[in-house]
Simulated assay, not measured.
Amino acid sequence: MIICNLAVSLLLLSLSISATTNRSDEQQCVHRIRVPRNTVFRARVMTELMINCTITQHGCHRSPRVSWCKIYENHCKALNHSDYITTEWKNMTEHEGMAFLIFLKISKEDAGLYRCKEGDSSIGHGINVTVTDKQDEFSPTPSITRSDEQQCVQRIRVPRNTVFRARVMTELKINCTITQHGCHRSPRVSWCKIYESHCKALNHSVYITTDWKNMTEHEGMAFLTFLKISKEDAGLYRCKEGDSSIGHAINVTVTDKQDEFSPTPSITSDMNTSPKNDLQWLWPYVYICTGIAGLALVMAITLLYVVRCQGRKPTGKDMASKNQNIKTQKSDQLLPPHLCLNSDLLTSVIYRV
């Protein structure tokens, strides 16, 4: 009976501790919804539209409980799943994710203001959904006003003294890295070539193209590609984002000698990131071989030291010589040195007797 009562007490105590822990963890969990003000999504009738809100969480051990509602005058009516509306959640990083509201076949009745919520505490700004039946007004991406544009911060990262070398009539691709925070559009990257005091804008042609590639959520890389580079293309180039952010100059050198060809950037100083080498894959094998050689050398030295400490093992001849010396020493010790008699003296004594 005592054991049963003890078991029940321990069970209740564990349940109480678990509830207290969950309550404390719930109190430490902080969710924040990030939706830019005056966000507008536009779509054409009977097409699919996906709107979203970003949610950051800290100290949480559960996924966010996201709900969507549509604003009607002074209240927000909750939205439920249907044949035309679905919701979705996607983790972007460890502490950030994105909630989606998807209109599978949007209609004009779906136009209006929408809002996403996390639980009952965190609420985002309203998202304006506009539906049109005109082809030229269709814009499935969000439209951000000037106030949100001012919050967009973009920075260009190009190491100082970056040099690209290429051989004539070959392809060369130079690049600059752009980071962006608080932006809801792709960077507007342009390239120019420096002539003394001004930088002349470059346009697409048969020999020059530009490209953009997203590396992470907040970072991408802009490329300027020379399809068939010539000696006239040598010089200093610069990438720009809009009219505010400008990167350091990139030196392009063109040669017609085979031994000077180097399509990868050579950075002489102030290098933020080291360029990839064609022999980069060889270094792990060099490290492994060096480690094996070092281990073999240590084992050989250890073995020689052990053999030297033990000394040379005696042979059979050495053992026999050692035994003979021992017997000789024993025979010499039978008579003390002062009792040993000369043979001639012993004979003369006998005759006298």
Rank of each mutant, 00 (worst) to 15 (best):
M98S: 11
M50K: 09
Q28M: 12
F164N: 05
R65D: 03
E94F: 07
L113A: 11
T132Y: 15
P263M: 08
A19H: 13
V30L: 12
M98W: 04
V45G: 08
R37Y: 14
C69M: 05
R308C: 07
S266F: 08
K70M: 07
V168I: 04
C183Q: 10
D133Y: 09
T347S: 10
R146K: 12
F41H: 09
S9P: 12
F223H: 00
M215S: 02
N342V: 11
Y195R: 08
H58P: 10
N80K: 01
R65P: 01
R62V: 06
L279F: 09
L79V: 05
S122Q: 09
S230H: 05
L334D: 14
C60A: 07
I194S: 05
F223V: 00
K77H: 03
V35T: 12
L11A: 14
I71W: 03
C4K: 12
L334S: 12
L303Y: 14
P275D: 00
L6C: 13
A201I: 02
N277S: 00
R312Y: 13
C29P: 01
N22I: 13
P336H: 14
E94H: 09
S245C: 00
T315K: 12
T93D: 06
S24F: 10
M98C: 13
F100S: 01
W68F: 07
R312L: 15
S121M: 05
S18Y: 13
T93P: 00
A7E: 10
L10T: 03
G182V: 13
S197M: 11
H248D: 01
Y114Q: 02
I178P: 03
Q154P: 06
G220Q: 06
I55F: 06
V286K: 10
Y207E: 10
H95T: 11
T347E: 15
T20I: 14
T86I: 04
L279N: 07
S262V: 06
S343C: 13
F41N: 01
S18G: 05
L49N: 04
P314N: 15
N342Q: 08
T145W: 09
Y195D: 00
K322N: 15
I123W: 02
C76F: 11
C176H: 07
I144S: 09
N251L: 03
F100A: 00
C192N: 03
L304I: 13
A296N: 04
F164L: 06
Y207A: 14
T273W: 03
K327M: 15
C29Q: 03
E48N: 07
E96F: 08
L297V: 12
Q329I: 15
T20W: 11
R62K: 11
C152Y: 09
L101Y: 04
R165L: 02
D243T: 04
N91V: 08
N5E: 14
T264S: 01
E109Y: 11
G294Y: 06
Y285H: 12
M98K: 11
E217I: 10
V349F: 13
D120Q: 07
S266Q: 00
L13P: 03
C29E: 09
A166S: 05
R62H: 04
C239F: 02
M1L: 12
A300L: 15
N272E: 09
I2P: 01
L282H: 04
H184T: 00
